[in-house]
């Protein structure tokens, strides 16, 4: 059930150092023409060819959906990660040709909202860059609260403040500024929808506080791509295709399945979309579930795994793939 071509050939037109941790990348179509229209909150999957390995990482589009002559993404360097962000930071240069996917939106605006209340932490600011541009173009009502470590790491706070002025509220840790979330949530007009993107702890805090304050689930939107974690190598039998694979330390199970020549479905590669869900046929060992898709019951049952982010430790694992 997978549809036609999903890949777009692009050329890197600019790489901008935003601060000590973040670089911004601009892409245009290699063969000219505008890129597909998208909606604020969408991401693309960027293909990285790194010494014989292909890595596919999702990044939120941060450019304005109203102007698709180019796409821009911002990548925060993660020195402890598996190398995707390091590859972007070290290897990607202007003029380079790359391949990205069509945009997909798993964090879209709810257009029924009378007001959009946005809460961002750190690099979680990027989807809001596109959403605020989309809303501002249509006279939409929004307010953005943005928490960061310090001025130097307040990625795009200056741009946002210049564009939207008092609709942007900044909270800097090193200045002891703190978002009073309870108060903020209790003073919102009827018809307000809440969006949060940032570190896991922040998303948990915002969701819990909103639930406590009586916000219905459907008014609270969050985006949290889990980055695949490195871990100990493990062996897997793919029963349907009758192949045995080994998942390396810096490789996800999904990547190892792909490296074996299979073409399993995926969209987010961050444990949220559900596409890569795979049945477990048998196992002897322990699952390291890192996804946000399966229920706790699914996790306990040992019947399912999300290969884009989850791993395994033990003697044997057989999957229905």
């Amino acid at each position: 059930m997978r549809a036609g071509s999903n890949r777009i050939d692009v050329t890197v037109t600019d790489v901008v150092v935003v601060n000590e941790l973040v670089k911004r990348f601009h892409f245009e179509r290699t063969h000219g023409g505008i890129l597909p229209t998208f909606s604020g909150g969408a991401h693309v999957v960027v293909e990285m060819r790194d010494e014989g390995k292909t890595r596919l990482n999702p990044y939120s589009l941060m450019s304005s959906p109203l102007d698709t002559r180019d796409y821009t993404i911002s990548v925060r360097r993660d020195d402890a990660g598996r190398g995707g962000s390091l590859f972007m930071h070290r290897e990607v240069k202007p003029g380079q040709r790359m391949v990205i996917s069509n945009p997909v939106n798993l964090f879209s605006l709810d257009l029924r909202a009378k007001k959009h209340l946005m809460i961002a932490g750190g690099i979680g600011i990027t989807p809001f860059m596109a959403q605020t541009a989309q809303l501002a173009g249509r006279g939409g009502n929004f307010e953005l609260h943005y928490a960061c470590r310090n001025d130097a790491l307040a990625t795009y706070a200056d741009v946002l403040t210049a564009r939207y002025d008092r609709r942007i509220h900044l909270y800097r840790d090193d200045h002891g500024e703190k978002l009073d979330l309870e108060k903020l949530l209790s003073t919102q007009p009827l018809g307000t929808y809440l969006y949060v993107c940032g570190p896991a702890g922040m998303i948990k805090w915002v969701r819990a506080t909103a639930a406590e304050a009586g916000w219905p689930d459907e008014t609270v939107h969050f985006e949290h791509f889990a980055a695949p974690q490195p871990g100990k190598p493990f062996d897997v039998r793919l029963a349907v295709s009758e192949v045995d694979i080994r998942v390396g330390e810096h490789e996800s199970l999904l990547e190892a399945i792909e490296a074996a020549g299979l073409n399993p479905p995926y969209l987010c590669r961050g444990g949220v979309c559900g596409q890569c869900e795979t049945n477990v046929i048998s196992y002897d060992g322990k699952f390291l579930h890192n996804d946000h898709w399966l229920s706790e019951e699914d996790h306990r049952s040992g019947c399912k795994i999300m290969p884009c982010v989850s791993r395994f430790e033990g003697k044997s694992l057989t999957l229905e793939r």
Binding site: N102, P265, L267
Partner: peptide, 13 residues
């Protein structure tokens, strides 16, 4: 439904 929710633009079904 799972398939439709994940449908991408440029890839109609």
């Amino acid at each position: 439904l799972k398939f439709l929710m994940a449908l991408q633009q440029g890839q109609p079904a």
